[in-house]
Amino acid sequence: MKTLFIDCSPKKKLSASGFIAGFTAAFTRGKKVREKLRNRADHERIFEHMEGADSVVFCMPLYVDGVPSHVLPFLKDMENRYKDREEKPAVYVIANNGFIEGRQNEPLMQVMENACARMGTEFHGGLGIGGGVMMNVMRILILVYFGLAVLNLVLSAVNEGVFNAGILLEFGKQVLEVLLLGCGIIAYDLWLAHCINRGRAYGKHYTRIMLPSFVFILCADIFFVISSVIDLGIFRGWLSAKKPSGE
């Protein structure tokens, strides 16, 4: 069994789509290939890896209620290459958006379903994730907690000459708290990986980060305030209705 994961985020690093592609691949059996789709120069390389693939998993961010523009020519290219072929990979989609509601990915999911119909490939379903950007926060938090736990272990060993197992327990508790935020995503994604392994249709499912929406909005607002202070945008007419230059 061969599965091709395509990270369609235009970001070079720290993309939520890349993270969820890697997470899903970890629970997928057989040969796994991960590729990035950022522009037309990537097409040929990705199609080479698509040869002999049983499944293709498109992982992408939601852009203005739809598929990011740079992905559309790839779909057309795939349609032209595969519509007359007999052996075609089944397509799964994992979409994530910056809003809290996973259901906001529905138009994107329909576009992908329509593309599969044109290609003659089987659309095996997709997972729409709300608050997907929090997956990045989760993995950073776990790394920070891990670093702090190691530091505390070393310090307690040096200062007190003992191995403090309580530090590991505390780290485990912190990891569980973080994973609780993503329990919906984890559960639905494991189910998706199971369907890929069995070659089964998954259907369309939507989930989200387990936070009340007003808390998520508050967190997002704070994040953007901090980002805008660091990037200095807050001092450059941050929220003003700027007119086109020359008007």
Binding site: S9, P10, K11, S15, P61, F224, S227, S228, I230, D231, L232, G233, R236, G237, W238, L239, S240, A241, K242
Partner: peptide
């Protein structure tokens, strides 16, 4: 996907 049109050089 950099969001700089929000955080760095608005609009």
């Amino acid at each position: 996907g950099c969001f700089h049109c929000w955080t760095k050089n608005p609009a």
